[in-house]
Design a protein around this nucleic acid. Structure first.
Length: 964
RNA sequence: GCCGAAGUGGCGGAAUUGGUAGACGCGCUGGACUCAAAAUCCAGUGGGGGCAACCCCGUGGAGGUUCAAGUCCUCUCUUCGGUACCA
């Protein structure tokens, strides 16, 4: 009796409320002290998880950072428990404009602000229990780190990949800084939203274009989200075609153009130059309307890129009168225009205009009344399905008339809907021997619709071809459609035969409905020709192209390119949208570019033993109005001696862009303290490539592309071992953005920024972590919801109180094993939201028990721990374990126990669920089961006296009965 | 314009290969506990009809394939991202 009371009192006293603040602090201290997450360098079962290291801004960590960091933290924690040696590092990308702008405003040195911000970030990250290996941390602003950033630049210089060039760069008027194309968003500066203008500046450039093909090809063998691969490919923008030289009549000048369609050369009826094109200047003497031309050019230059690219802007241009170009394929003299729809930044800044087959050229030609010549007749080839064109079978050619027929009064047109095939088309009929197209068409119209008053109005352009396999007759068909337009004069209808009636219905379709009614591309195109407003830019068969007539596009391209090469007027060529990377910034807070200019010896790199070129302390952080870096004012720093001849020389005063430090940081985490080389080869081999890299979608064409480029370069020069390949990241995923409450973007100005610190203080780190993982699918944008946070907190409270139910009892293990399975798989696939919902299901079920067996509860704690590590550690501890659970074995599930013994499946009658039946799992279909089901009352009722046509039983899924 | 992703209750969202749509969470309603509130617990909760057993309708819209469609096919509308005269 006494003992009973004693136990009872102990039991009462032990029970405490969930107090996250106490638990969080306790375990964070424990992990720090015991170096729980410090990663040893060793060969073997390693796993490198990486998240984008942040810029340490004054605002501190935001919820978006945490979504990414928590996700890979969950993955890292699970991998550790699965026995992997996990590297999950963190550092800071601390060079950049905010610290510099702050310095200009307050005259506080960027070092000081940066140091303070980094300390704050570290304490914030620790306060949410991210399992980073802090021993490997660094900042890109550490001289020990940027020494190697500078070293990489020098290696690029030595290989000819870094060069100085005068560029018409994007210049932000408010930041006073040159921007890469990637940093100009919608015509304004990505950072400050300020106006971007064009400015000529001498800049350091990196030849990323040399790696363009490898950057495309490398994507094939790595596990990146498809959307990322596609965006990178589009950004690089490779297109293959030819360069063609057009002579300018009576001069020695030629105009070089790039085209992806050399097969349309015979259709080139004029040329167009970009306003900035240098040849305009060179030809000034011959241009008779020079004043007009100059006026147009200066007007065009004033426009921003955005204005020039504005939607639906009518095309403008002016002809260069007095000069003509000569089309090399047919020696025709064609006019030359300057127009701002041609951009200097793409291709050669000049085009051959083919108005028949390019929509922009077409619009321009229409406006200025220029010749439009058709040189490609469309060919529609069926390539898929059983009626796909078969290369090796014989081909039967057929001429046919296609008729667009207008109503006698209204703006409606005849279409045919076939009855036995899914075909919505126009009136089509074969042209018989001795018949012309119009006669054939009239005959068909009368036969198929009964209307006899069709009056021929006009032809609808040239022929359209279609090829497919006729499955019934077992032959390839190639049909040549002649498009004809008719108008009915009256409503007289002579009727149609029964045979025709059985084939199709005649439909009168309103003008604006016709296009969507027609369901085959060749008919749609024929219909659109009635309105004469577009150029056909697809593939087809050549016409009006001299000796090349009759060739199909692909073959024509090859032949004409050979012809151009033979006649020395062109060659095959590849063009990219990607430009070389402008690598200079006229600012202070960045890595100094380690170059010296000697008037005698030219540009020379700073010798290796003088690296790093440290950033000198300055008093005035303002850039000069002429765009000079603040460093230019540091005369004593700028003046130096030439490393080659020893005479007076000057240092480069530009600094690197903030991408410089971030494009190789993941390499340094493998060996962060190495003073001899960028990275020790053996250590690089242990960790690289990165197994899993998660970050934001916004870095797809910037950081992610740049760092792949730099890594390939380091691979080429042997700075990283060859054995690891030339791709830095095996797998790349991206999280969705977190929006403010109500679904609007978080911003200071809107005052809807969520500060994670507040939630850590109020609910604890685990609630914040679990909420961020639970709020929705990881890759989708989602709005913050305070109510959801409370719900998660309730769940953790429940998990906490479950510990007081631990005791001896028998509890069914089914849900536990199902949960282990689901949580394991969901974490691997970043389906964190459903993993947590499964944990909730499990906790709800355990809560229903009067007592929970200890081993079940332990496993629950273990699979909860990646999401809520502090709570899990505390529970683990109170279960009697002394050590951290960070390296405990991840529970395994028993496939048998994860399955239910029996399963309830629905019984459908004529497609509707009417009843259900509980069957042992994996019950095979049998006559007995069928009998049992048919004897159930509800089933009997619904079948009534109808006859059973079909009885379907899919194991573990459904019973479906069809009755009549 | 083009490319990509997505449209499911009051809300965030679940739903293997097509197989009982709405798991889990929020919110709401009712109840218990409380002097009261909060917290907690229990029950209910797609819409409509019916006392009820049940029935009808439901995954942006219109067609289609199938015994069976949120899921597959055709067309279409909307939203959100990316991109922009790319020759």
């Amino acid at each position: 009796m006494i003992k009973f009371y004693y136990n009872f009192i102990i039991f009462m006293v032990k029970k405490t409320d969930y107090n996250p603040n106490r638990i969080d602090a306790k375990w964070q201290k424990f992990w720090d002290k015991n170096k729980t997450y410090t990663t040893p360098d060793k060969k073997g079962d390693n796993f490198y998880a990486l998240v984008e290291f942040p810029y340490p801004s004054g605002d501190g960590l935001h919820t978006g950072h945490l979504r990414s960091y928590t996700a890979l933290d969950v993955i890292s924690r699970k991998k550790r428990m699965e026995g992997k040696n996990v590297l999950y590092p963190m550092g800071f990308d601390a060079f950049g404009l905010p610290a510099e702008n702050f310095a200009i405003k307050t005259n506080t040195a960027p070092e000081i602000t940066t140091k303070k911000n980094i300390a704050n970030y570290i304490s914030q990250m620790k306060s949410v229990g991210l399992s980073f290996d802090w021993d490997r941390g660094f900042s890109t602003t550490d001289p020990d780190y940027y020494r190697w950033t500078q070293w990489i630049f020098i290696q690029m210089f030595k290989k000819g990949l870094a060069y100085k060039s005068v560029e018409n760069i994007n210049w932000c008027n408010s930041c006073k800084i040159g921007l890469a194309n990637e940093e100009v968003v919608a015509g304004v500066c990505e950072r400050c939203g300020g106006e971007v203008v064009k400015k000529e500046k001498e800049q350091w450039m990196l030849k990323i274009t040399e790696y363009a093909d490898r950057l495309i090809d490398g994507l094939d063998n790595i596990d990146f989200l498809e959307s990322i691969k596609k965006q990178q490919k589009d950004w690089i923008g490779k297109s293959e075609g030819a360069e063609v030289d057009f002579k300018i009549k009576d001069t020695k000048e030629t105009l070089k153009v790039f085209t992806t369609r050399p097969d349309t050369l015979f259709g080139a009826t004029f040329m167009v130059l970009a306003p900035e094109h240098p040849n305009v200047h060179a030809l000034e003497g011959k241009i008779s309307n020079l004043v007009e031309v100059k006026k147009y050019i200066s007007h065009a230059k004033k426009k921003t890129d955005e204005e020039r690219g504005a939607e639906d802007k009518p095309k403008t241009g002016v002809e260069l009168e007095g000069i003509k170009a000569i089309n090399p394929v047919n020696n025709e003299e064609i006019p030359i225009f300057v127009a701002d729809y041609i951009m200097m930044g793409y291709g050669t800044g000049a085009i051959m205009a083919v108005p028949g087959h390019d929509q922009r050229d077409y619009d321009f030609a229409k406006k200025y009344n220029l010749e439009i010549r058709e040189v490609i007749e469309p060919l529609f080839s069926k390539n898929e399905g059983k009626d796909a064109f078969r290369e090796d079978e014989k081909i039967i050619e057929r001429d046919a008339a296609v008729c667009v027929v207008k109503h006698w009064k209204e703006d409606r047109y005849i279409c045919l809907q076939w009855k036995n095939v899914d075909w919505h088309g126009l009136i089509v009929g074969g042209i018989k021997d001795g018949e012309d197209a119009v006669e054939a068409a009239k005959r068909e119209i009368e036969e198929e619709t009964g209307y006899a008053s069709a009056k021929f109005v006009k032809e609808l352009g040239g022929k359209i071809h279609a090829q497919f396999y006729q499955t019934l007759k077992k032959e390839n068909r190639r049909a040549h459609f002649h498009g004809l337009y008719f108008e009915l004069e009256d409503d007289k209808n002579v009727g149609i035969s029964e045979k025709e009636q059985a084939i199709h219905d005649v439909k009168w379709i309103d003008k604006d409905q016709v296009e969507s009614f027609l369901n085959v591309p060749d008919m749609k195109l024929m219909w659109r020709r009635l309105h004469e407003c577009e150029a056909y830019s697809g593939d087809g068969i050549a016409v009006n192209s001299g000796e090349f007539d009759g060739l199909e596009t692909l073959e024509f391209k090859q032949k004409i390119t050979k012809w151009l090469e033979k006649n020395k007027v062109g060659k095959s060529a590849t063009n990219y949208k990607l430009h070389d990377w402008i690598f200079s910034r006229q600012r202070y807070w960045g890595e100094p570019i380690p170059m010296i200019k000697c008037t005698e010896c030219g540009w020379l790199p700073v010798p290796d033993d003088e690296l790093p070129v440290t950033l000198p302390k300055v008093d005035d952080f303002k850039p000069g109005d002429d765009g000079e870096s603040p460093l230019a004012k540091m005369i004593s720093w700028v003046n130096t001696t030439c490393p080659k001849c020893g005479k007076f020389a000057k240092r480069e005063t530009d600094v690197m862009p903030n991408w410089a430090g971030s494009n190789w940081y993941f390499i340094r985490f493998c060996d962060p303290k190495n003073s001899q080389e960028l990275v020790d080869k053996e250590k690089a081999e242990m960790w690289l490539p990165v197994d899993w890299y998660n970050g934001g979608m916004e870095h797809t064409t910037l950081h992610l592309l740049y760092s792949r480029f730099v890594f390939k370069f380091l691979f080429d020069i042997g700075a990283v071992p060859k054995s690891i390949g030339d791709e830095p990241y095996k797998k790349r995923t991206a999280q969705g953005m977190i929006l403010g409450e109500g679904g609007i973007k978080m911003s200071k100005s809107k005052g809807n920024v969520i500060n994670p610190d507040d939630y850590v203080a109020k609910y604890g780190a685990d609630t914040l972590r679990v909420y961020e993982m639970f709020m929705g699918p990881f890759d989708q944008s989602i709005a913050w919801d305070d109510k959801g946070v409370k719900g998660v907190h309730k769940f953790l409270n429940k998990a906490w109180s479950l510990q007081y139910k631990v005791g001896k009892s028998d509890v069914d293990q089914g849900t536990l094993h199902k949960s282990i399975k689901k949580v394991s798989e969901d974490i691997d696939n970043m389906r964190f939201n459903t993993a947590i919902s499964q944990l909730m299901i499990l906790s709800n079920e355990l809560d229903k028990q009067s007592s929970i067996p200890k081993d079940i509860f332990e496993k629950f704690v273990l699979i909860l721990s990646p999401f809520a590590p502090h709570l899990a550690e505390e529970l683990w501890n109170s279960l009697g374990h002394k050590d951290s659970l960070a390296h405990e074995k991840w529970p395994k599930y028993d496939g048998g126990l994860a399955k239910d013994d029996s399963i309830v499946i629905g019984i459908q009658i004529n497609g509707k669920v009417r009843d259900e039946i509980e069957l042992p799992t994996d019950t095979e279909p049998s006559k007995e089961i069928e009998k049992q089901i048919l004897s159930q009352d509800k089933v009997k009722k619904h079948i009534g006296d109808k006859k059973i046509v079909k009885f379907i039983h899919i194991k573990n899924k459904i019973i479906s009965i069809v009755v009549k």
